[in-house]
Amino acid sequence: MLHKYKPGDNVSAADAADLSSLLERHPDSAAKIGMGIHHFEVQAADYSSQCFRVVRPDGTWARFSYKACIAPSV
């Protein structure tokens, strides 16, 4: 899913629903989600890669790794 978008793109509503469920599994989900989710975007990251970021209703945002969401808890 990540690579069907380019940095700066907003994620579609259908993909946002999946990302919302995925983000709930992040170890820091409460901090990442904060006051809620307005939308998701794709952002350029280190080493010519890209990542997702959650944008909150107040315009603040947080990057997150989908890998952290799917990693087994220890």
Results as ranks from 00 to 15, higher is better:
Met1Ser: 15
Leu2Arg: 07
Leu2Trp: 01
Leu2Ala: 03
Lys4Val: 04
Lys4Arg: 15
Lys4Tyr: 02
Lys4Glu: 11
Lys4Gly: 00
Tyr5Phe: 08
Lys6Asn: 05
Lys6Arg: 14
Pro7Asn: 04
Gly8Phe: 03
Asp9Asn: 15
Val11Pro: 11
Ser12Tyr: 00
Ala13Phe: 10
Ala13Pro: 03
Ala14Leu: 13
Asp15Cys: 02
Ala16Trp: 04
Ala17Met: 01
Ala17Arg: 02
Asp18His: 11
Asp18Val: 07
Asp18Cys: 02
Leu19Asn: 10
Leu19Arg: 10
Ser20Thr: 15
Ser20Asp: 12
Ser21Tyr: 02
Leu22Tyr: 06
Leu23His: 13
Leu23Tyr: 13
Leu23Gly: 11
Glu24Ile: 09
Glu24Lys: 15
Glu24Tyr: 13
Arg25Phe: 06
His26Val: 07
His26Tyr: 05
His26Pro: 04
His26Ile: 07
Pro27Phe: 06
Pro27His: 06
Pro27Arg: 05
Asp28Arg: 13
Ser29Tyr: 09
Ala30Gly: 02
Ala30Ile: 10
Ala30Met: 04
Ala31His: 09
Ala31Asn: 11
Lys32Ser: 01
Lys32Asn: 05
Ile33Asn: 08
Gly34Arg: 08
Gly34Phe: 12
Gly36Tyr: 07
Ile37Pro: 05
His39Arg: 12
His39Glu: 09
Phe40Met: 09
Glu41His: 03
Val42Lys: 00
Val42Asp: 00
Gln43Gly: 08
Ala44Pro: 05
Ala45Glu: 03
Ala45Asn: 13
Asp46Asn: 14
Tyr47Asn: 15
Ser48Tyr: 02
Ser49Met: 04
Gln50Trp: 00
Gln50Cys: 00
Gln50Asn: 00
Gln50Ile: 01
Gln50Thr: 01
Cys51Trp: 00
Phe52Ala: 00
Phe52Met: 02
Arg53Pro: 02
Arg53Tyr: 02
Val54Gly: 07
Pro57Glu: 04
Pro57Ala: 05
Pro57Gln: 06
Pro57Asn: 06
Asp58Trp: 06
Asp58Phe: 07
Thr60Met: 10
Thr60Asn: 12
Trp61His: 15
Trp61Leu: 08
Ala62Val: 06
Ala62Cys: 11
Arg63Ala: 13
Tyr66Ser: 12
Ala68Lys: 14
Ile70Gln: 14
Ala71Gly: 01
Ala71Cys: 04
Ala71Thr: 10
Ala71Phe: 04
Val74Cys: 11
